[in-house]
Design a protein around this nucleic acid. Sequence first.
DNA 1: GCCAAAAATGGAACAGCTTCCATCCAGTAT
DNA 2: ATACTGGATGGAAGCTGTTCCATTTTTGGC
Lengths: 344, 344
Amino acid sequence: MAGIRDVARLAGVSQATASRALSGKGSVSARAREAVAAAASELGFVMSYHASSLASGRSHNIGVVLPFVNRWYFATLLEGANSALMDAGYDLTLYDFQGDRYRESVLGDFLLRKRLDGVLAVSLQLNAHETEQILAAGIPVVGVGGPLPGIPTLRIDDVEVGRRATNHLISLGHSRVAHLGGEHELGRNFEISSGRRAGYEEAMAEAGLPLREAWSLISDYSANDAYKETKQLLADAEERPTAIFCASDEMAFGAILAARDLGLRIPEELSVIGVDGHEMGEILGLTTIDQFPRNQGTRAVERLLALVQDDGGAAGPADELMETRLVVRSSTSAPRIPAGHSGS
Amino acid sequence: MAGIRDVARLAGVSQATASRALSGKGSVSARAREAVAAAASELGFVMSYHASSLASGRSHNIGVVLPFVNRWYFATLLEGANSALMDAGYDLTLYDFQGDRYRESVLGDFLLRKRLDGVLAVSLQLNAHETEQILAAGIPVVGVGGPLPGIPTLRIDDVEVGRRATNHLISLGHSRVAHLGGEHELGRNFEISSGRRAGYEEAMAEAGLPLREAWSLISDYSANDAYKETKQLLADAEERPTAIFCASDEMAFGAILAARDLGLRIPEELSVIGVDGHEMGEILGLTTIDQFPRNQGTRAVERLLALVQDDGGAAGPADELMETRLVVRSSTSAPRIPAGHSGS
DNA sequence: GCCAAAAATGGAACAGCTTCCATCCAGTAT
DNA sequence: ATACTGGATGGAAGCTGTTCCATTTTTGGC
């Protein structure tokens, strides 16, 4: 295996110059640069990543920490982050908590091995100790879906999302609106679930509409669980809501399928709105609030790389709000309870 | 930052002994081991990953290469791989081709930077040059969904899967069976698509059933594309098949939704079978051939780590077949064309 | 107790690149 | 011409562990 020494020798320059020529840092004459490039390609030289990292202190490697890689939102955000990192020539080291299964080992062991230039923490709720631990490692961190105290964070306004979704339903004439939200459990993406729920409750209150205990459901964000919850919710025709706001598109899929299986027509007998912007929403006609997760991933990487490269310089806003957009499709409409059903 | 030298000094041993004590390799007395451990924890010592990798040549880092992170099969397999790697104390570096967008940079640049102990290549079709390039890098590779020439591979018997799915439909009494498969494009997971299609064709031929050009569809494996294809397929009532075998569950979802939107009842008017084992299949009642992707991920890592740790020792079978299972739900039944429709 | 074998230990040579610092040199201002 | 400036270059000291090899200490069998 050819080393940079060999390249330098073949190019007739010093090792120092060869290093500068290859990295592009420092000043090198055009002649030397070309000689080095020629020598490197002739020898098939590939720089040792480890040696380079050890000497320079930079690894060109970013860690991405997320709770699930197998949910649409996270996978799509990851894709965006991957793009941005590839384009910048960085490697992406993936840490998938898988719920909470690897939470401890990631936070306790993996992240601290000082091999990363930065960390992207997605939907991560850290306690004080964990935050301290990470910050103590001294590497830049950017969060998505926080806020994480002391860490610059990218997020959408979840309360606003909840309001907007709910208001969409209310403005169509619905008064019996249910909400299917995510888990409350702390340590998870608590803020997100509770934010959307708060927006729902605010919108209902503002419109003077009643909140019913039975219309406020909790699921694990999966379509299957949402299906079960929705089926229960809709079982009693008398107590049935005319619309349901789901905190994610995958949950909305479950809700739609549950309604169909009960023989309810959408949107005539039940309007459904989700959050995310899942592609499959197109073929289900799902009205949703698109949050452009891919975009969140690339933007988060931009922010993070700025921190990494500016070496702790100015950070931009501590809390950056990302755009969302209401996409109206055919799963929402004014309530049109068919004849034969009794209203409220 | 404390280095191993500091630890050694505090523990009153040589650097060499400290290293052995910390890594567990080589023989160290219990006394020394404890002294080193105590010193390390007192100093809050964290080993430098880069220095360690440079000196030892091992990075405890595995690269996972896949064409999409945002499709259920790949995300689930990745989750399995992640588990196995976490448990073994390895990092996972993710390379997502995103179709073919990053194919070249991954294969040409990223993989060759000799920073990985091994590579897991999922659904990767390599040409001769690429294979050579990767093998030349000298790091162990295990493939999933090959076969990749010269590389140990884990896969399911796609031809058999195609036959089994098709025979399930035939045995229910269907004779008008369509197939919705994946792309043919080379460089992609060509073998998989063509294997399942071959199985379909074989089964049809064995049963003496006709293959129709119009019943052999191609999509990009996504639900949305499958939806469109299926809608076209089913448009003409006269030429309509009574059953459709989809090469993935996500495609099957699209097919089911398309059929529903056309007012066709499932399974009475159209039976649908998929491949994968997607959880959402439960609420759609999808009959499928489960291929346990999570399990494929963990098994592939096992194989790879064996190669990595045995340092090129015995490899196990070059081509390992993974298990699949037919899961019958409510999307398939005997054809029961309702009155008013004309048969064949 | 004695000797061979095994275990434990330390010194020092790496692993392969980056970068500080001093030096050299060509171009420019005076 | 002379002094000055800044680019280009090379020498060598890191960066931080790992591991070979030789040496010393233990251990176990008789």
